[in-house]
Amino acid sequence: MTQAQTQSANAGPGLADYNFAYLDEQTKRMIRRAILKAVAIPGYQVPFGSREMPVPYGWGTGGIQITASLIGPNDVFKCIDQGADDTTNAVSIRRFFAKVGGVSTTEHTGDASIIQSRHRIPEKPLVEGQILVFQVPQPEPLRNLEARETETRAMHAYEEYGLQYVKLYENISNFGRIAATAGYPVMVDDRYVMSPSPIPKFDNPKLHNSPALHLFGAGREKRIYAVPPFTKVESLGFEDYPFEVQSWDEVCGLCGAKHSYMDEVVLDDDNNRMFVCSDSDYCAERRAQGHVGPHAGHELSEIADDVSNETQEVMA
């Protein structure tokens, strides 16, 4: 890291303020303009000049660029990967912004003003003023079925969305139900069909009329799109096979939650397994409130607690 960047990281006076949080100001202006356009046309994919980031494409460059152009010294930043705050990618992106912007970071959904995520929307309902930034690998929901960009653009322009249903049709004919789970297409504001990044369809209903701002950044594909607060977001489905979310018979092994999104953890070779909340902050918060699950006190919960304490220390 050069001297100038170190200075900017400390957010000191003078020139150091000029390049706050990694990106140069001209790039941020360009990205903010794209964000404004995306917010003005919910669900529409706005092209932007994606920059080289210090991580490879596919590691969240789109999300990092959006965060970098929005974040300010007073923001509190949270980053999750697969729902957890303590996975490698989440930890390194959080550290990145702590270093280049000197912003404070948190693991608590309620405390964060900007949350960057790939696979999940936090279980705790977002509130007005919060921004959720998604890292999107493939912004085009029609891409698997139609390879031509000119054609998919025309389809969006003229609202020709019959093709999107072909995918769901195939699902039903193969599995007897709509088996697609991640990146389940949604109709935003009755106009644009949008891919909500690879979040599980469990999280799709959370987008509907959410008070928070949802921004989607695809670095490699150079697209930004948005779901502004209080926007109608409807998951697609057939009349006789409507959209439905996943549910689990089990409760969270650590905190006993019934209605959160669960990860299955294999415990040994004897077919023992437990289900735990994929949202680590939600699970920890429930445990702190005294909720207990059937596997409470399992060594995994201690590991999880240790890691989060450790990360807090590093951040501090």
Partner: peptide, 23 residues
């Protein structure tokens, strides 16, 4: 569309017309 089934190929024009009933 070579990547989707024969049935979906035949049904696609119906979906393009706005038919949303699988059965």
């Amino acid at each position: 569309r070579m990547r989707v089934s024969a049935g979906a190929n035949v049904a696609e024009p119906l979906m393009n017309l706005g038919n949303r009933h699988y059965g």
